[in-house]
Protein backbone atom coordinates (compact mmCIF):
# COMPACT_ATOMS: atom_id res chain seq x y z
CA UNK A 1 0.00 0.00 0.00
CA UNK A 2 1.14 3.48 -0.81
CA UNK A 3 2.72 5.59 1.86
CA UNK A 4 0.59 8.67 2.51
CA UNK A 5 2.67 10.44 5.15
CA UNK A 6 6.36 10.14 5.79
CA UNK A 7 8.00 12.08 8.60
CA UNK A 8 11.71 11.78 9.12
CA UNK A 9 13.73 13.03 12.08
CA UNK A 10 11.36 15.81 12.99
CA UNK A 11 12.74 18.06 15.72
CA UNK A 12 10.66 20.89 17.18
CA UNK A 13 11.70 23.14 20.03
CA UNK A 14 9.72 25.78 21.90
CA UNK A 15 12.65 27.83 23.19
CA UNK A 16 14.35 25.46 25.69
CA UNK A 17 11.70 22.76 25.56
CA UNK A 18 12.22 20.00 23.03
CA UNK A 19 8.65 19.17 22.08
CA UNK A 20 9.59 16.58 19.46
CA UNK A 21 12.88 14.76 19.43
CA UNK A 22 13.69 13.00 16.17
CA UNK A 23 10.14 11.97 15.50
CA UNK A 24 9.56 9.49 12.67
CA UNK A 25 6.25 8.33 11.32
CA UNK A 26 4.97 6.51 8.29
CA UNK A 27 1.29 6.26 7.47
CA UNK A 28 -0.06 3.89 4.83
CA UNK A 29 -3.03 4.55 2.63
CA UNK A 30 -6.39 3.58 4.08
CA UNK A 31 -5.30 2.91 7.62
CA UNK A 32 -6.12 4.54 10.90
CA UNK A 33 -2.87 5.62 12.42
CA UNK A 34 -2.92 6.26 16.16
CA UNK A 35 -0.77 8.72 18.03
CA UNK A 36 -1.06 7.85 21.69
CA UNK A 37 0.53 9.75 24.53
CA UNK A 38 -0.25 11.60 27.74
CA UNK A 39 -1.07 15.32 27.76
CA UNK A 40 1.91 17.40 26.71
CA UNK A 41 3.70 14.53 25.00
CA UNK A 42 3.82 16.38 21.67
CA UNK A 43 0.90 14.94 19.69
CA UNK A 44 -0.58 18.25 18.62
CA UNK A 45 2.86 19.65 17.93
CA UNK A 46 3.56 16.71 15.62
CA UNK A 47 0.31 17.21 13.72
CA UNK A 48 0.78 20.95 13.37
CA UNK A 49 4.31 20.45 12.08
CA UNK A 50 3.09 17.90 9.55
CA UNK A 51 0.42 20.40 8.45
CA UNK A 52 3.11 23.08 7.97
CA UNK A 53 1.43 25.32 10.49
CA UNK A 54 4.39 25.21 12.83
CA UNK A 55 7.97 25.95 11.97
CA UNK A 56 10.27 23.11 12.95
CA UNK A 57 13.97 22.94 13.55
CA UNK A 58 14.81 19.85 11.60
CA UNK A 59 13.20 17.08 9.61
CA UNK A 60 11.59 16.16 6.32
CA UNK A 61 7.85 15.76 5.79
CA UNK A 62 6.29 14.24 2.69
CA UNK A 63 2.57 13.84 2.08
CA UNK A 64 1.21 11.97 -0.93
CA UNK A 65 4.81 11.69 -2.08
CA UNK A 66 5.39 15.44 -2.22
CA UNK A 67 7.26 17.72 0.14
CA UNK A 68 4.80 19.44 2.46
CA UNK A 69 5.14 23.22 2.63
CA UNK A 70 2.75 26.06 3.53
CA UNK A 71 2.18 26.68 -0.17
CA UNK A 72 1.69 23.03 -1.17
CA UNK A 73 -1.89 23.78 -2.17
CA UNK A 74 -2.45 20.55 -4.08
CA UNK A 75 -1.58 18.55 -0.97
CA UNK A 76 -3.62 20.81 1.27
CA UNK A 77 -6.69 20.36 -0.90
CA UNK A 78 -6.67 16.63 -0.13
CA UNK A 79 -6.33 17.03 3.64
CA UNK A 80 -8.96 17.52 6.31
CA UNK A 81 -8.18 18.67 9.83
CA UNK A 82 -10.14 18.36 13.03
CA UNK A 83 -8.07 20.43 15.46
CA UNK A 84 -7.91 19.76 19.16
CA UNK A 85 -9.77 22.97 19.95
CA UNK A 86 -13.17 23.53 18.41
CA UNK A 87 -12.08 25.72 15.52
CA UNK A 88 -15.07 27.55 14.12
CA UNK A 89 -16.21 31.15 13.82
CA UNK A 90 -18.53 32.17 16.64
CA UNK A 91 -20.33 34.72 14.48
CA UNK A 92 -21.47 32.09 11.97
CA UNK A 93 -24.17 29.47 12.46
CA UNK A 94 -23.58 25.74 12.30
CA UNK A 95 -24.58 25.58 8.64
CA UNK A 96 -22.63 28.68 7.69
CA UNK A 97 -19.49 27.42 9.37
CA UNK A 98 -19.59 24.09 7.55
CA UNK A 99 -20.39 25.81 4.26
CA UNK A 100 -17.64 28.38 4.77
CA UNK A 101 -14.90 25.86 5.50
CA UNK A 102 -16.10 23.52 2.77
CA UNK A 103 -16.04 26.50 0.41
CA UNK A 104 -12.33 26.93 1.02
CA UNK A 105 -11.92 23.62 -0.85
CA UNK A 106 -14.95 23.18 -3.09
CA UNK A 107 -15.79 26.00 -5.49
CA UNK A 108 -18.72 24.42 -7.31
CA UNK A 109 -21.91 25.49 -5.56
CA UNK A 110 -24.06 22.44 -6.26
CA UNK A 111 -21.35 20.00 -5.22
CA UNK A 112 -20.68 22.01 -2.11
CA UNK A 113 -24.33 22.07 -1.15
CA UNK A 114 -24.44 18.29 -1.39
CA UNK A 115 -21.18 17.81 0.52
CA UNK A 116 -22.28 20.12 3.29
CA UNK A 117 -25.56 18.26 3.66
CA UNK A 118 -23.73 14.93 3.76
CA UNK A 119 -21.41 16.22 6.46
CA UNK A 120 -24.40 17.44 8.47
CA UNK A 121 -26.03 14.03 8.17
CA UNK A 122 -22.78 12.34 9.08
CA UNK A 123 -22.46 14.15 12.41
CA UNK A 124 -26.24 14.33 12.92
CA UNK A 125 -26.48 18.07 13.39
CA UNK A 126 -29.64 18.54 11.31
CA UNK A 127 -31.60 19.98 14.21
CA UNK A 128 -29.05 22.64 14.99
CA UNK A 129 -28.27 24.24 11.64
CA UNK A 130 -29.28 27.75 12.70
CA UNK A 131 -27.51 27.63 16.07
CA UNK A 132 -24.44 29.66 16.84
CA UNK A 133 -21.58 27.52 18.18
CA UNK A 134 -21.84 29.15 21.61
CA UNK A 135 -25.31 27.68 22.07
CA UNK A 136 -24.18 24.09 21.41
CA UNK A 137 -23.27 21.60 24.12
CA UNK A 138 -19.71 20.28 24.30
CA UNK A 139 -20.51 17.13 22.35
CA UNK A 140 -22.38 18.99 19.61
CA UNK A 141 -19.53 21.49 19.28
CA UNK A 142 -17.15 18.60 18.75
CA UNK A 143 -19.42 17.21 16.08
CA UNK A 144 -19.49 20.58 14.35
CA UNK A 145 -15.70 20.68 14.56
CA UNK A 146 -15.60 17.33 12.81
CA UNK A 147 -18.12 18.32 10.15
CA UNK A 148 -16.04 21.39 9.29
CA UNK A 149 -12.97 19.21 8.84
CA UNK A 150 -14.46 16.45 6.71
CA UNK A 151 -17.16 18.07 4.57
CA UNK A 152 -14.91 18.46 1.53
CA UNK A 153 -14.27 14.69 1.50
CA UNK A 154 -10.52 14.71 2.00
CA UNK A 155 -8.39 11.64 1.34
CA UNK A 156 -6.44 12.17 4.53
CA UNK A 157 -7.89 13.41 7.81
CA UNK A 158 -6.18 14.41 11.04
CA UNK A 159 -8.19 14.07 14.22
CA UNK A 160 -6.51 15.70 17.19
CA UNK A 161 -8.18 14.40 20.36
CA UNK A 162 -11.69 14.73 18.95
CA UNK A 163 -13.35 13.16 21.98
CA UNK A 164 -11.95 15.26 24.80
CA UNK A 165 -14.72 16.51 27.08
CA UNK A 166 -17.43 14.58 25.26
CA UNK A 167 -20.20 12.49 26.79
CA UNK A 168 -19.91 8.71 26.26
CA UNK A 169 -22.75 8.63 23.74
CA UNK A 170 -21.29 11.35 21.53
CA UNK A 171 -17.88 9.75 21.88
CA UNK A 172 -19.20 6.47 20.57
CA UNK A 173 -20.84 8.28 17.64
CA UNK A 174 -17.55 9.94 16.83
CA UNK A 175 -15.60 6.69 16.94
CA UNK A 176 -18.20 4.97 14.75
CA UNK A 177 -17.94 7.84 12.31
CA UNK A 178 -14.21 7.45 12.05
CA UNK A 179 -14.62 3.75 11.41
CA UNK A 180 -17.06 4.57 8.62
CA UNK A 181 -14.50 6.93 7.10
CA UNK A 182 -11.94 4.14 7.05
CA UNK A 183 -14.41 1.85 5.34
CA UNK A 184 -14.74 4.49 2.64
CA UNK A 185 -11.00 4.37 2.09
CA UNK A 186 -9.98 7.52 3.95
CA UNK A 187 -6.62 7.56 5.66
CA UNK A 188 -6.89 8.79 9.25
CA UNK A 189 -4.34 10.05 11.73
CA UNK A 190 -5.86 9.94 15.19
CA UNK A 191 -4.37 11.28 18.38
CA UNK A 192 -5.63 10.60 21.84
CA UNK A 193 -4.58 10.05 25.38
CA UNK A 194 -7.33 7.47 25.81
CA UNK A 195 -5.79 4.11 25.11
CA UNK A 196 -9.17 2.38 24.72
CA UNK A 197 -9.95 4.56 21.71
CA UNK A 198 -6.66 3.99 20.01
CA UNK A 199 -6.87 0.30 20.81
CA UNK A 200 -10.29 0.15 19.20
CA UNK A 201 -9.47 2.18 16.10
CA UNK A 202 -5.84 2.09 15.20
CA UNK A 203 -4.19 -0.26 12.74
CA UNK A 204 -0.79 1.15 13.51
CA UNK A 205 0.24 3.38 16.33
CA UNK A 206 3.00 5.31 17.93
CA UNK A 207 3.28 5.85 21.65
CA UNK A 208 4.80 9.21 22.47
CA UNK A 209 6.18 10.43 25.76
CA UNK A 210 7.87 13.80 26.26
CA UNK A 211 8.43 14.20 22.55
CA UNK A 212 10.09 10.83 22.11
CA UNK A 213 8.66 7.75 20.46
CA UNK A 214 8.76 4.97 23.01
CA UNK A 215 7.02 2.30 20.95
CA UNK A 216 5.46 1.77 17.58
CA UNK A 217 3.80 -0.98 15.56
CA UNK A 218 0.44 -2.70 15.39
CA UNK A 219 -1.43 -3.24 18.62
CA UNK A 220 -0.47 -6.90 18.72
CA UNK A 221 3.15 -6.08 18.07
CA UNK A 222 3.18 -3.60 20.91
CA UNK A 223 1.60 -6.04 23.31
CA UNK A 224 4.19 -8.60 22.42
CA UNK A 225 6.93 -6.15 23.23
CA UNK A 226 6.27 -6.36 26.92
CA UNK A 227 6.95 -9.35 29.16
CA UNK A 228 3.58 -9.47 30.81
CA UNK A 229 0.95 -10.54 28.34
CA UNK A 230 -1.77 -11.98 30.53
CA UNK A 231 -3.11 -11.42 34.01
CA UNK A 232 -4.89 -14.48 35.39
CA UNK A 233 -7.07 -14.14 38.45
CA UNK A 234 -8.39 -17.15 40.35
CA UNK A 235 -10.76 -16.98 43.31
CA UNK A 236 -9.92 -19.89 45.58
CA UNK A 237 -9.33 -20.14 49.31
CA UNK A 238 -6.68 -22.03 51.28
CA UNK A 239 -4.10 -22.60 48.59
CA UNK A 240 -0.91 -23.82 50.21
CA UNK A 241 2.67 -22.85 49.43
CA UNK A 242 3.30 -26.18 47.85
CA UNK A 243 0.75 -25.51 45.11
CA UNK A 244 1.87 -21.88 44.72
CA UNK A 245 5.42 -23.03 44.18
CA UNK A 246 4.27 -25.49 41.56
CA UNK A 247 2.56 -22.64 39.73
CA UNK A 248 5.71 -20.51 40.00
CA UNK A 249 7.67 -23.29 38.37
CA UNK A 250 5.37 -23.42 35.35
CA UNK A 251 6.80 -22.22 32.08
CA UNK A 252 5.92 -18.58 31.20
CA UNK A 253 4.87 -17.52 34.69
CA UNK A 254 6.80 -14.71 36.31
CA UNK A 255 4.78 -13.25 39.09
CA UNK A 256 2.48 -15.04 41.54
CA UNK A 257 0.57 -13.23 44.24
CA UNK A 258 -1.85 -14.76 46.75
CA UNK A 259 -3.68 -13.06 49.61
CA UNK A 260 -5.57 -16.05 50.97
CA UNK A 261 -8.61 -15.77 48.71
CA UNK A 262 -7.52 -14.33 45.38
CA UNK A 263 -4.65 -15.58 43.32
CA UNK A 264 -3.14 -13.23 40.74
CA UNK A 265 -0.70 -14.60 38.23
CA UNK A 266 1.14 -12.60 35.61
CA UNK A 267 2.08 -14.67 32.63
CA UNK A 268 4.08 -14.16 29.48
CA UNK A 269 2.65 -14.88 26.08
CA UNK A 270 1.50 -18.46 25.62
CA UNK A 271 -1.72 -20.26 24.93
CA UNK A 272 -1.96 -22.67 27.85
CA UNK A 273 -1.38 -20.43 30.82
CA UNK A 274 -4.90 -20.64 32.23
CA UNK A 275 -5.17 -24.37 31.60
CA UNK A 276 -1.80 -25.02 33.24
CA UNK A 277 -2.72 -23.12 36.39
CA UNK A 278 -6.14 -24.71 36.69
CA UNK A 279 -4.73 -28.18 36.35
CA UNK A 280 -2.18 -27.55 39.13
CA UNK A 281 -4.99 -26.39 41.44
CA UNK A 282 -7.31 -29.26 40.47
CA UNK A 283 -4.56 -31.77 41.15
CA UNK A 284 -4.14 -30.21 44.60
CA UNK A 285 -7.88 -30.67 45.20
CA UNK A 286 -8.73 -26.98 45.55
CA UNK A 287 -12.15 -25.73 44.59
CA UNK A 288 -12.25 -22.62 42.45
CA UNK A 289 -15.06 -20.08 42.32
CA UNK A 290 -14.14 -17.86 39.41
CA UNK A 291 -11.28 -17.76 36.96
CA UNK A 292 -10.61 -15.01 34.51
CA UNK A 293 -7.85 -13.86 32.26
CA UNK A 294 -7.15 -10.30 31.13
CA UNK A 295 -5.14 -9.40 28.08
CA UNK A 296 -2.61 -6.62 28.53
CA UNK A 297 -3.74 -3.13 27.57
CA UNK A 298 -1.79 -0.34 25.93
CA UNK A 299 -1.71 1.16 29.37
CA UNK A 300 0.34 -1.84 30.50
CA UNK A 301 2.63 -1.27 27.57
CA UNK A 302 3.05 2.34 28.57
CA UNK A 303 3.49 1.45 32.20
CA UNK A 304 6.17 -1.08 31.50
CA UNK A 305 8.07 1.19 29.10
CA UNK A 306 7.95 4.39 31.12
CA UNK A 307 7.19 3.28 34.65
CA UNK A 308 4.12 5.50 34.86
CA UNK A 309 0.45 5.45 34.05
CA UNK A 310 -0.65 6.70 30.64
CA UNK A 311 -3.52 8.65 32.03
CA UNK A 312 -3.05 11.00 34.87
CA UNK A 313 -6.74 11.74 35.32
Amino acid sequence: MAEVIKVENLVKRYKELIALDHFNMSVKEGEIFGLLGPNGSGKSTAINCILSLLEYDKGAITIFGEKMTPRAYSIKSKIGVVPQEVSVFEELTVYENIDFFCGLYIQDKATRKRYVQEAIDFVELNDFLKFRPKKLSGGLKRRLNIACGIAHKPKLIFFDEPTVAVDPQSRNKILEGIETLRQNGTTVVYTSHYMEEVERLADHLIILDKGTIIAEGTIDELKKMIKKSELITVEASGIEDDALNKIRELKNIFNVNYDGSILKVEAGSGKHNVVDIISVLQNGGYSMKRVFSEQPTLNDVFLELTGKQLRDD
Partner: peptide, 17 residues
Amino acid sequence: RADISVGAMRVSVSPAR
Protein backbone atom coordinates in the same frame (compact mmCIF):
# COMPACT_ATOMS: atom_id res chain seq x y z
CA ARG B 1 -3.48 34.49 11.85
CA ALA B 2 -3.57 30.89 12.96
CA ASP B 3 -1.64 31.72 16.12
CA ILE B 4 -4.39 34.07 17.29
CA SER B 5 -7.65 32.44 16.33
CA VAL B 6 -8.66 28.84 15.96
CA GLY B 7 -10.85 29.64 12.97
CA ALA B 8 -7.84 31.10 11.20
CA MET B 9 -5.94 27.91 11.93
CA ARG B 10 -8.46 25.99 9.93
CA VAL B 11 -8.31 28.57 7.16
CA SER B 12 -4.52 28.26 7.14
CA VAL B 13 -4.51 24.53 6.51
CA SER B 14 -6.88 24.92 3.57
CA PRO B 15 -5.65 25.45 0.02
CA ALA B 16 -7.39 28.84 -0.16
CA ARG B 17 -4.97 31.60 -1.13
